[in-house]
Design a protein around this nucleic acid. Structure first.
Length: 334
DNA sequence: TCGGCCCTGGGG
DNA sequence: CCCCAGGGCCGA
């Protein structure tokens, strides 16, 4: 489910709900996630306080600390009137961060990470529960179990994890020269480049298609055949579509909910994703769907030509080996 | 660099 | 029944 806008929405929802709270218990389901949960982490987490909630790419990062609590919080009470407001690091994981422990969560395809009243009946497919000191629970639910959660004793461990994955830069304020080089040095299709988390972190199948539509670029175009100015357009389109999607609280196709359990709303604004056969909102041509980088890729044949007709003599990328798919696609939730 | 695989559920 | 699905990782 979750691309950057969905993950960002979860993070923004959770921040005021869990920042400053202390973990009082950890419960682990029987079925294993992509990364098996180490039972030794439970003892490290109990008593830890959530200092901050952030995001890196599609990863959710909780910053934790083990400082001794003031006297004793009386559970059940709301936030004390005189108590210091919890720290709100607006910019996710960058900037000034503590060197303490980290909880790293990835939602996979169907993961849900919510703060819920402990009294709410537990849903099915619930795999991890972090009870908090205000009678709420952080709950990780994931039908397909492609998601993962793991604990790092310190910030360096988390950094090493991202470094090992070669996680690329955030898409906001992305360096233009860097992106031009990354795109133009490869023969892979643009769609594959956008999905590559080592190039840019956070873009997934929905927003790759939407960004390519905004930029007027065919998803099958080889990176090294795309003029620099067009790559710049693509970079701006990525930023624009992600910004709009965050404002719309992400896209709910089926499973996605934000940190408070609310569905997203941006699926109604999709121009091409999941709209195979429907008319293009810009030119009316039917939206087409092909398979690229192993994923369905939706585009408008009218607005996103597979060749650059401007310089017919020079640039002539062929649409190469793309098979049309049935004129049918997943429809967004009603 | 790409396909297959990890899972479960929903829709045609 | 078959195919499809917001992702990432691993091996050929």
């Amino acid at each position: 489910m979750p691309e950057l806008p969905e993950v960002e929405t979860v993070v923004r929802d959770l921040r005021p709900l869990v920042a400053g709270r202390t973990v009082t218990a950890v419960r682990v389901g029987a079925k294993r996630l992509r990364t098996p949960w180490d039972a030794a982490w439970n003892a490290r987490l109990v008593g830890a306080r959530v200092d901050a909630v952030g995001r890196r790419g599609k990863w959710i990062v909780l910053e934790l600390s083990q400082e001794p609590l003031p006297p004793t919080p009386s559970p059940g009470k709301g936030r004390g009137a005189g108590s210091k407001p919890p720290p709100f690091p607006g910019e996710g994981v960058g900037g000034e961060v503590s060197s303490g422990a980290r909880l790293l969560v990835h939602l996979g395809m169907t993961g849900q990470f919510t703060a819920s009243p402990a009294a709410d009946p537990p849903p099915d497919h619930l795999h991890l529960v972090f009870a908090l000191d205000d009678r709420t629970e952080l709950r990780f639910r994931d039908v397909r179990r492609f998601g993962s959660a793991r604990y790092f004793a310190d910030a360096a461990g988390l950094d090493a994890h991202f470094a090992a994955a070669k996680l690329g830069p955030e898409p906001f304020g992305l360096d233009a020269a860097y992106f031009r080089d990354a795109v133009r040095r490869t023969a892979r299709p643009l769609k594959a480049v956008l999905l590559d988390q080592t190039v840019v972190a956070g873009v997934g199948n929905i927003y790759a298609d939407e960004a390519l539509f905004r930029a007027g670029l065919h998803p099958g175009l080889k990176g090294n055949r795309v003029p620099p100015a067009a790559v710049d357009r693509l970079r701006e389109a990525v930023e624009a579509v992600l910004t709009a999607a965050v404002a719309g609280r992400g896209s709910t196709i089926r499973d996605y909910v934000g940190g408070s359990g609310l569905r997203g709303g941006y699926q109604h604004a999709h121009a091409v994703y999941g709209r195979t056969g429907e008319p293009c909102p810009a030119c009316g041509s039917p939206i087409e769907c092909v398979r690229l980088a192993g994923r369905s890729s939706h585009f408008c044949g009218g607005c996103q030509p597979s060749v650059f007709s401007r310089q017919p003599g020079k640039t002539k990328p062929r649409a190469a080996g793309i098979s049309k798919r049935r004129a049918r696609g997943p429809r967004a939730e009603s």
